[in-house]
Amino acid sequence: MPVDKIQFGTQIWTGESALDGLDEIKGKRIFLVTDPFMVESNNIEQITKHIDDNNEVKIFSQIKPDPPISEIVVGIEALKEFKADLLIAVGGGSAIDATKAMKFFVAHAVKDNSKLDLIVIPTTSGTGSEVTNFAVITNDEKGVKYPLVTDEILPQIAILDANLVESAPQKVTVDTGMDVLTHCLESYVSINANDFSDALAEKGFQMVFTYLERVSENGSDMEARRKMHNASCIAGMAFNLVNLGLNHGIAHAAGAQYHIAHGRLNTILMPHIISYNAEMETGVMKEPNRAAKKYANLARLIGIHVANPKIAVRSLINAIVQLRKRLKMPATLSECGVKQDFFEETKASISSAALKDGTTTTNPRQPSQAEVEKILEDSYI
């Protein structure tokens, strides 16, 4: 059997005073990457007020959702010109992924910057990027997303401060929260899953079902905010150990074409992916496969006690669909405004790209092109 190598390379700062740790940084040239809203709203001051005047700081805020390669190139040039010796990423997945990409490409272009440290401060509770060696960048011209996976982009420090997500709009809260649920589900049934990743995935899964609806209804519920912020990080630790699956493979490919929020797209696909992985098409009396048994374990964690694993899976799918409905999220691609003719035009290319995506390799079932297209069709209606 292969050896499972368990390593958590990122130090996590959490608690009410997590940002105070920045006060200790002295004499650095800090390249701070964020999105325009953080600067325009002055929210970035929540970070910069902790950075001592002894440091030189350059703020780069040319970041938009699904960061394109062209934008990252601009950031790389600014980073090289500034001669930074510390990177700080502040924002959601786009700002963090863009910063990771900058770190990677600068390290390979400028030998002196090969040990550029990275501190990540997430302002959404969803991607888990603060503790992963993943980043996703977009080729706008080709409409393709490329996962970048290497330990070279693993952050040295992650700072979790739930106050930074208190003002997140309800749509962002639920989109990112359901992305956390997807991370838990996919890492749990990954072909690489182990006892350690399972423990993290199970805990994150329970936390989402306990706290996401609460924070959706009341964004000022700081206990729920903190729990979801922690759940996002926990889920990130899980999938960083064992990778993800077909849900993300399709979401990466479809997101580049349809420009639907990543967590929302994952949520639309999720019931169909679970059904496919558990081979629900063979009927509930058929011997359950490994994925079905594991999904049944998760069902029990949220109070679904059914002896037949496949019936438990069906109940889990129903629980997710009902949660999605209570969160006022769309259930289909068509509800998100994807036109029928454009869907038909892109269905094959999305399916092909999903099969090539690095996250699909650890899915519990290896799908065919036709099977991916069927999942897309079921997600469209």
Rank of each mutant, 00 (worst) to 15 (best):
Q11A: 12
G93D: 06
K64Q: 13
R324D: 05
V73G: 08
S125N: 02
L241Y: 06
L181R: 00
D198W: 08
E81P: 05
T173Y: 00
I157R: 12
A168F: 05
K328Y: 11
A95L: 11
G204V: 07
T99E: 05
K145D: 05
N240M: 08
M1I: 13
L160D: 03
F196G: 10
N289T: 07
K64S: 11
A201S: 13
F8L: 13
A312S: 14
D175T: 05
G93T: 03
L327T: 00
G245C: 00
E279Q: 14
A84D: 01
A256W: 01
V172Q: 04
G143Y: 03
I44G: 04
K347S: 08
L164R: 10
I304E: 05
L333P: 01
A201H: 07
A307G: 13
Q7I: 13
Q156W: 09
V90K: 02
L164Y: 07
G219F: 06
T359R: 03
T123V: 07
L32M: 03
A168S: 09
V372L: 01
E279W: 10
A193P: 07
A238P: 04
K294H: 14
I153T: 03
A224I: 07
Q322W: 15
N240K: 09
V180K: 03
A78P: 05
K203F: 15
L327R: 01
G126I: 01
I119S: 05
G303D: 06
K111R: 10
S167Y: 04
D53W: 06
F342N: 12
P67D: 04
G245E: 00
